[in-house]
């Protein structure tokens, strides 16, 4: 059971992101100036509350992974602010970041390449303690054993190299490592998409249990909306660097308002042959390149409802109902009419 009750316990937010942008330079001229920019993340704002799981769903090129990397500051934002527990971490330099590193941790997508193949499981998990000088050797060993226990690994496995573990077990090592520094927020970037179905459930359940146990907040990034819906309290839908819709999970799944969310819902395969659709009502064509994103609304080139205003004006993300925000001109019109 995902810890929904914890949501009401605290009112404060763990992280507030506003106006976040990340442009990646593409190609360079002879003078070293970038020829072009990929608009990976373009003016994104959201907050995650204490103990909450925010799901971030989007297809390839949506910029969802970049948001995760920005929050743990593997990337430096082009603009915008990220208030983590009230402190803006968006512009901190590497050295200044060190005290905050422990607070936001990350679980990676690929459990194979995200663990150093030349290190033992125990060394991987104890590394954060050594870096932050948290205790002597005996104390650290104790802490590592506790973490192994918490994520369901055996103590005898401490001395094994990561290639000796299965995918699910490796992901557990990654989770144990992320938990080492008592984080408050965990960025889970596609943590189960590289795993077999039967193992996915193990890891998803483990994350939900750990959330209750350690009062964690999550940003859960995935391309699969059914996985996101399962673990998240709220869902943010992203397309080509922009948030399209943000709402509570049940509300979003039952009443998707943005045409893109709707088509995502139509496209996702449902494991119930009785609900089979002969024709999926999905936008034709492919996702445009983030290097030259469409003007105005990013989705307009594939949107069945697009009209002339969509090409001219960028729709703003606004609440159309309580706790349900949409960035779409269709609803601007509705609101103006009302």
């Amino acid at each position: 059971m995902v810890g929904k009750d914890t949501m009401t316990k605290t009112n404060g937010s763990i992280i507030q992101v506003s106006g976040l942008k990340k442009y990646f330079p593409i190609g360079r001229t002879l003078l070293g100036k970038p020829k072009n920019f990929a608009h990976a993340v373009d003016d994104v704002s959201f907050t995650i509350k204490q103990g909450e799981t925010l799901g971030l769903v989007g297809e390839s090129g949506s910029g969802k992974t970049t948001i995760g990397r920005l929050l743990v500051r593997l990337e430096k934002p082009t603009a915008g602010s990220m208030l983590f527990e009230g402190k803006d971490i968006s512009l901190l330099k590497k050295r200044e970041l060190k005290p905050f590193r422990g607070g936001i941790q990350m679980v990676f997508q690929d459990p194979y390449s995200s663990l150093n193949p030349r290190m033992k499981a125990g060394d991987l998990v104890s590394e954060p303690f050594i870096i932050y000088r948290k205790g002597n050797r005996v104390e650290i060993k104790e802490k590592v054993e506790k973490l192994f226990d918490a994520v369901g690994l055996r103590k005898e496995q401490i001395d094994r190299y990561s290639h000796e573990f299965s995918g699910g077990q490796r992901q557990r090592i990654g989770i144990a490592r992320a938990l080492a520094l008592n984080p408050r927020l965990i960025i889970a970037d596609e943590p189960v998409s590289a795993l077999d179905v039967s193992v996915q459930a193990q890891v998803l359940n483990l994350l939900a249990e750990l959330q209750d146990e350690f009062d964690l907040s999550f940003l859960f990034i995935a391309h699969d909306i059914s996985v996101v819906a399962h673990v998240s309290h709220r869902i943010a839908v992203m397309y080509l660097g922009k948030l399209m819709e943000v709402a509570e999970t049940k509300e979003l799944i039952r009443h998707p308002r943005h045409p893109y969310t709707e088509s995502l819902m139509n496209a996702v395969p449902i494991p119930n042959p009785k609900l089979r659709r002969d024709k999926h009502d999905v936008p034709q064509g492919d996702i445009p390149s983030p290097i030259n994103p469409p003007s105005g609304c990013r989705f307009r080139t594939r949107c069945p409802h697009a009209f002339d205003r969509c090409a001219k004006e960028i729709p703003l993300l606004r609440e159309i109902e309580s706790k349900h925000a949409v960035a779409c001109h269709l609803f601007d019109k509705e609101m103006e009419d009302a």
Partner: peptide
């Protein structure tokens, strides 16, 4: 049976 129960499903919301 296990596989079918191990996957998150959207249809439960619908």
């Amino acid at each position: 049976e296990g596989l079918l129960r191990a996957i998150p499903r959207l249809d439960q919301y619908l």
